[in-house]
Measured scan of single mutants.
Amino acid sequence: MSIQHFRVALIPFFAAFCLPVFAHPETLVKVKDAEDQLGARVGYIELDLNSGKILESFRPEERFPMMSTFKVLLCGAVLSRVDAGQEQLGRRIHYSQNDLVEYSPVTEKHLTDGMTVRELCSAAITMSDNTAANLLLTTIGGPKELTAFLHNMGDHVTRLDRWEPELNEAIPNDERDTTMPAAMATTLRKLLTGELLTLASRQQLIDWMEADKVAGPLLRSALPAGWFIADKSGAGERGSRGIIAALGPDGKPSRIVVIYTTGSQATMDERNRQIAEIGASLIKHW
């Protein structure tokens, strides 16, 4: 067993022997301040990774656009098919120029040779490549099948209805392509620590998230040296922004954090800054 596999296998073990965790309302004060600064709703939840206990939450059962955070769930569904012998990570998928959609920095470079399922998941999570996500959605049967996968996990809230990039439209009061912070946090925890996926697939999923290259201005910008984070960000229309993450000190994750916002007129930089400040408060009061 590799060191990384050992780390993920012992996530519940280490967490069980940690000192009790206590909620700190100071972080919620910052979440509410972010709402004021952005002029928009902000949803927040913080779960203990081992027990699933909610440590703090704000608007945990209000719907927010998922945006690209759905790509972690998508690759979880792909990995479940791999575990069941219905898919192979090494299978190569070929596609054409007509398949390319807006923001496809990886797939646009491989029109000639195609990409493997493993490479597509890596591109979808680490670079948020939209064509990679659409190609992977095709392998599982489309958005409705991802929703069905989530329902089978016990998540009857999260739903995907459309493809990239239309799913980022974020129309107010439109339930399409949305989740709730509580539902997303619980589902992410199941994917990373539950028995739904094999140990190898859980490790692969967290490795992809740990290698995320496009979430630097968010929670990662607030992390002290030595902290662990595996995350996936999302951005959408109407001032929408979000991030889902597993993080913790001492090089291992111990909490799940989900943050979503929508309806702001603020710039992307300002949305990023507010999420980073929430992260800084979380870490300060850990």
Results as ranks from 00 to 15, higher is better:
M1R: 01
I3V: 08
I3T: 11
Q4E: 15
F6V: 11
F6P: 07
R7K: 10
A9N: 09
L10A: 14
L10F: 10
I11C: 13
P12E: 06
F13S: 09
A16V: 14
A16M: 15
F17E: 04
F17R: 05
C18W: 12
L19S: 15
L19K: 15
V21T: 10
V21A: 14
V21P: 05
A23K: 05
P25K: 10
P25D: 10
P25R: 08
K32Q: 15
A34Y: 06
A34G: 07
E35K: 03
D36E: 13
Q37N: 15
R41Q: 10
V42I: 12
G43E: 00
G43C: 03
G43D: 00
Y44G: 02
Y44R: 00
Y44E: 01
Y44M: 09
I45D: 02
E46N: 10
D48K: 04
L49S: 07
L49I: 14
N50M: 15
N50D: 15
S51A: 08
G52F: 05
K53E: 12
K53R: 14
K53S: 10
K53M: 13
I54M: 11
I54Y: 09
L55P: 02
R59H: 08
R59S: 05
E61Q: 14
E61R: 13
E62K: 06
R63Y: 07
R63S: 08
P65Y: 03
P65H: 04
M66N: 02
M66Q: 06
M67Y: 02
S68D: 00
T69M: 03
T69Q: 01
F70K: 02
V72N: 01
L73H: 07
L73D: 04
L74T: 06
L74A: 06
L74K: 02
C75Q: 01
G76A: 13
A77F: 10
A77K: 11
V78R: 00
L79A: 03
L79P: 00
S80L: 11
R81D: 05
R81M: 08
V82F: 07
A84C: 11
A84I: 12
A84Y: 10
G85Y: 08
G85K: 11
L89W: 06
L89A: 07
L89K: 04
G90M: 13
R92W: 09
R92P: 08
S96K: 10
D99W: 07
D99N: 10
E102S: 13
E102Q: 15
Y103H: 08
Y103W: 15
Y103S: 06
Y103A: 06
V106G: 06
E108D: 11
H110L: 08
H110Y: 13
G114Q: 04
M115H: 03
M115G: 02
V117Q: 03
V117A: 04
R118S: 15
R118P: 04
C121D: 00
A123K: 02
A123V: 07
A124R: 00
A124L: 03
M127N: 08
T131S: 12
T131N: 04
L135T: 07
L136W: 00
L136N: 01
T139F: 06
T139N: 10
T139D: 11
I140G: 04
I140F: 06
I140R: 02
G141K: 07
G142Q: 04
K144M: 12
L146N: 02
L146F: 12
T147P: 03
T147R: 11
T147S: 10
A148I: 13
L150M: 11
H151Q: 13
H151P: 04
H151T: 12
N152D: 15
M153P: 01
M153G: 08
G154Q: 09
G154N: 07
D155A: 01
D155R: 00
H156F: 11
H156N: 14
V157A: 13
R159Y: 06
R159N: 07
L160G: 04
D161Y: 04
D161N: 08
D161W: 02
R162K: 07
R162M: 05
W163I: 10
W163H: 09
W163N: 11
W163S: 09
P165A: 07
L167G: 05
L167P: 04
L167R: 02
N168D: 07
N168W: 03
E169K: 13
E169D: 13
A170L: 08
A170C: 13
A170E: 06
A170M: 07
I171D: 13
P172K: 10
D174C: 06
E175D: 14
R176L: 08
R176V: 06
T178Y: 02
M180P: 03
M180E: 15
P181Q: 00
A182P: 06
A182M: 15
A183P: 07
A183Q: 12
M184C: 06
M184Q: 04
A185E: 00
A185S: 08
A185R: 00
T186R: 14
T187W: 04
R189E: 09
K190T: 14
K190P: 03
L192I: 15
L192T: 07
T193S: 15
E195D: 14
L196Q: 15
L197K: 06
T198H: 08
S201R: 06
R202M: 06
R202H: 08
Q204D: 09
Q204I: 10
L205C: 03
I206C: 14
D207Y: 14
W208S: 03
E210I: 14
D212W: 02
K213R: 12
A215C: 04
A215E: 04
A215G: 09
P217V: 11
A222H: 10
L223M: 11
L223R: 05
P224M: 04
P224N: 06
G226A: 09
W227L: 01
W227V: 02
W227N: 01
I229P: 00
A230K: 00
D231S: 05
D231W: 03
A235E: 03
G236W: 01
E237C: 12
R238I: 07
R238Y: 13
R241H: 04
G242R: 00
I243F: 05
I244T: 06
I244N: 02
A246N: 05
A246H: 04
A246S: 09
A246I: 13
L247W: 07
G248H: 04
P249C: 07
D250F: 12
D250A: 14
G251Y: 09
K252L: 10
K252A: 13
S254Q: 15
R255L: 05
I256R: 00
V258A: 09
Y260A: 02
T261Y: 06
T262V: 05
G263F: 04
S264V: 05
S264I: 04
Q265H: 14
Q265T: 12
A266W: 06
T267P: 14
T267Q: 13
N272I: 03
N272G: 05
Q274H: 12
I275A: 02
A276N: 09
E277A: 11
I278C: 04
G279I: 04
G279T: 07
A280N: 13
A280E: 15
S281C: 12
S281P: 03
S281F: 15
L282I: 13
I283K: 05
I283L: 11
W286K: 02
W286L: 04
